[in-house]
Structures are given as structure tokens and as C-alpha cells.
Nucleic acid binder design. Sequence first.
RNA 1: GCUCCGAUAGUGUAGUCCGGCCAAGCAUACCGGCCUUUCAAGCCGGCGACCCGGGUCCAAAUCCCGGUCGGAGCACCA
Length: 471
Amino acid sequence: MQEHRLPDLSGVTGEVRMRLAPSPSGPLHVGHSRMAILNDEYVRRYGGKLFLRIEDTNPANIDLDAYHLIPEDLEWLEVKVHEIVVQSKRMSVYYKEAKKLIERGSMYICECDQPVFKNYKLHSEACPHRDRSPEENLDKFEKMISGGFSKGTVSAVVKTDLNHPNPSIRDWIAFRVKEETHPLTGKTYFAYPMMNFSVAVDDHYLDLTHVIRGKDNLSNTEKQSYVFQYMGWKKPHYYHYGLVHIPGTILKTSIIKKGIRDGTYSGWSDIRLGTLLTMKRRGYRPETFRKYWVASGMREIDSEFSWEIFNSINREIIDPGARRLWFVPNPVQLKIEGGIDLKSSAPFHPGNPALGDRTYNLGSDPDIFIPEKDWAYIQENERFRLKDLCNVIRTHTGIRYSDNSHDDLKKVKIVQWSPSGSSDFKVEKPDGAVDTGKIEPLFSGVKGVSQFERYGYVNIDPEKNVGYFLH
RNA sequence: GCUCCGAUAGUGUAGUCCGGCCAAGCAUACCGGCCUUUCAAGCCGGCGACCCGGGUCCAAAUCCCGGUCGGAGCACCA
């Protein structure tokens, strides 16, 4: 893989200060890894600080485990976080800044019903509360944050431009009342900031120089810029990368959570999911994520995630250490007739002799296993090779030893096999399928990712006679 | 519908800001060959792209306009 290099950031005057801002709804998945890697790459390039800011201002959408799972995921990804900031611990800051905005006449308290307010905006009209005095707004805001309003009856709104072509940017909501218990702060707060408000305030307080995020935030950037403008704050440089569609895996936290609850999935690292936990379990390496996302760059084009390329990067990393093993899915048991004493010796890695060999003395007329799938295509009287063992001929009833010539290896079908003392082994695949079969006895000394010959790379869990299919 | 963004081979990208070194580089996939006791890895070779139409210019993948297609956002999620 060619070494790609991310473009330089503009406006760098020394060290940079950047952030990762996930919401704690669950652990990170492949999609999240992009923003983490991209930000980390730049902080490494220029030096500076990378903040992990946990955006937990919506108590309805928080998973307590995420508070530790996210930092763990990042650590695994080798993303260096310098400081963790939790938004729910900064509520007083948001309140303080909101009051400033109110005093300046840039924020008001609206008591319209939701659909009514929406309708005003749609028609570029001011709602009846828009021109209240700062004093009245301040009173209402105090009442709001001290629990004097119930959910849905009130909101704090940032004044923007009622004639803005994008209706969502016209007078956007900055605070609303939430009655759910917050997993961290409990019932302490009644009014929570909306993402666009807390993000603007924190990006300023953290003195960020650059913000890199997905282009789904394009209109958020515009909303947030009003706060920067009213406060006279200096804006960071923004970059928005295109959206990536990641095919063939399950990423949506809400779906995963539901699946875990109803027993569809075994947990956050269920083999079918696209969480980092799952990918780690399957044997993907953190360097793979880094290389892939750096190669993908930062352009605003939407793209399709390529498992093909991702896997190829990963293969390059893991192959040198991946021991070759014989795994026989759906085994057929056969006796090699002919009365010949048979012995097999094969390297754990043909390109890396240092990893040693595995040797089996089979004796004469041994029983072995071969894949049913291969057996089905072998004709009677056909001669084929058991890899690293000998050539055999299919007879009317089974197989018979033929010879051990290496002369026509290119012409003859070569099949993997495993000796009669093999263990039962299961491979769980990302599509939910499970292959059961036999694995050669010496697998027990092998840890981590190995290559099952003619099958694929598998991450072995030595405790359980189970492997997780990698690619 | 409205607002915004984008468009380079099957896929992922480099180049686009500051037009010429791009008859377009790389990776992956695919095809062929070599090597190899794997449908793994490696080596060599090959196939394959600037969305369309105008304009500016000596010169356009690169700048401008129009179109087409794709994507995102759309208001008490982050």
C-alpha cells in the first residue's frame, strides 16, 4: 500500500488543539474510527492537545458503559487523548454563557408549542416571545434551569436570521427541558443544552484551533458560528469530510442495543457487529484503521468503505505472524489404505521458518479428515494430494495411498486434511454462520490470528476451541 | 420541497486551491506469467478513469456557466 499523506491544515501557527466528540450512547464502531484517527494524526503531526469530549447532554440517550468503553476503544486504536471532558459536568458553564447571550439580546425564552414554533420559523416569522426584554428572558431562564417548567413547554432560542434560506438555521433551539434522570448527574439539572450550543461553548473554552468532523455537521457549523459571532470568539478552522457508507455490517447503536436487550446479539462484541470491540475480537489491527483512514483522506466526497482494501491492509500486517493450520470444515473421515507408514511435517509459516514445523506420525492405514466440499468433487480413480503428506487415489469405497511424488503438484488437486486425533473446532463468521469441523491437534499452542489453509484468517480463542473469522 | 455539498478506472484514492512537469500516479480487485506442496504471501507484466455540454485560454481533470447524477441536513438527537 502506498503511503498516503494527509493534506496540511491551514491556519496552523504552532501547536494545534483538537477534539473528538462522541456521544456516550455506546462503544465506538468502524465509522467513528475515522474521526478519531484523523484528529489524532494531525495532533501528532503538529503537536498539541487532543481532547475527548463526551457529549452527554441528552440524558435520554446515554449508556453508562460508554464512559469507559469509548476511552478503551481509543486506547486500542492508539489514539492519544490528552484530556477527557465530560459535558454534563460543565452545565454551569453553559448556563453562564447562555445568560450572557440573553443579556446581549441574542437569546430568548420561547414558550410556544413545538409545532407552533416550527411553523413561525417555516414562514420566517418571529414568535411572540422573540422580543421579550433581556430581564424577562433572564427571569424565565432562571425558572427554566431551576425546574420551573415542565418538558416541552419552554425552550431557550438563539436568535439568528429569520430570513435565512435554511429554515433549520433560523432561530435554533439552544436549551430544552429534560425530565429523564441523567446517569451521571441524576436529577440535578432540568434544562440541558442542545448540541449546537454546548459544542460552540466548549470549542471556545477548549480553545480549539481546528475541528475535523463529518460533513453531516455542515449546517451545525453554520448554526454554531452565530454563537461565536455574538460572543466575539475566534472560530476554529473547520474541516468536513465526506460520509462513508460501510456496507455489510451493523453499526447503528440503537439497533445494537435493542438486539442486545432482546438476545439477538451476545453483546457489544457480537461477531456480526461493526464495533471496534468486535473487530478487535476478529483480529483486526489498529494500524489497519490508521492506514485506511489516512489513505482515504479528508475530502468532502461521500464514499463507500472498501472491505477489500481494508482487509488487504490488515492481511499485510498480520500475515507474517499468522501460523498456518489445518482446519477441515464439514469433515469426511477416511482411511488411507495401502499399509504405508505415513508421516507429515509442514512449516507453521512457509515464509518464516523461525516459527517452526508441525509434525505428525500417522502410522499405517491412518484415519484422516478432509472437507466434504472437496470430497464431493473428487471422482473415483482420481489422484489428488493431501497437502504435505502424500498423494492418494479415490477408490470405490474410500482412498488408497498412491505415491509421494512432488513432480505434478501443479496439475493435481491439493487438499488440506487433519489427523484422526484432531479436535472439534468452531469458526464463527461475521454473517452469523458457524463452520464446524476438525482442527489439527497442535493448534493448541497457537495464539492469535492464524491462517487456516485454503480457508481464511481466523483469530483463535484458545480457551474455547472457537475461532472468529477475520477475512 | 428547501438548504448545502460533491462528481478521477469495479473499489479506495493522488492531482483540483496557485491551469502547462497529467496522452493522469498509487493501492486494491481482476487477467496472464514466475515462484510456491494453500483458493495465503511474494515477484513480473497487463486491463482499466478525469459525469455531460458549453465558455475562457496558446494551454483545462484543474477556472467559469448550464445540465445530469449522487449524497447530506431540514428545526426540543449528537
